[in-house]
């Protein structure tokens, strides 16, 4: 399954979370989303949003001035 990419670079918080939330609405259980962001707050906010919605953060890392967060979508009533 291919990984979807969300470019949230240059967006200030909480916009990276809002865009992540909007993108995940259209994704199915088990799909992966890679979020690219530049606001350091997104390294905290995006995983926090994933935790309250039950999605799994597979990895989060900083490269130069960018943050890359890999999420696996977990939709209720489906296995994950």
């Amino acid at each position: 399954m291919s990984t979807h990419v969300l470019d949230a670079r240059r967006l200030i918080c909480p916009l990276p979370v809002i865009r992540t939330q909007q993108k995940i609405e259209s994704l199915g259980d088990g799909e992966e989303l890679l979020v690219l962001a530049t606001d350091p707050g997104s390294l905290h906010d995006v995983p926090a949003w994933c935790r309250v919605h039950g999605h799994q953060v597979r990895s989060s890392e900083q490269t130069d001035d960018e943050y890359h967060i890999l999420i696996q979508v977990c939709k209720p009533m489906e296995s994950c």
């Binding site: 909480p14 350091p40 926090a48």
Partner: peptide, 8 residues
């Protein structure tokens, strides 16, 4: 700390 208070 850059937490989003609503998410917290």
């Amino acid at each position: 700390t850059k937490r989003n208070n609503a998410l917290w």
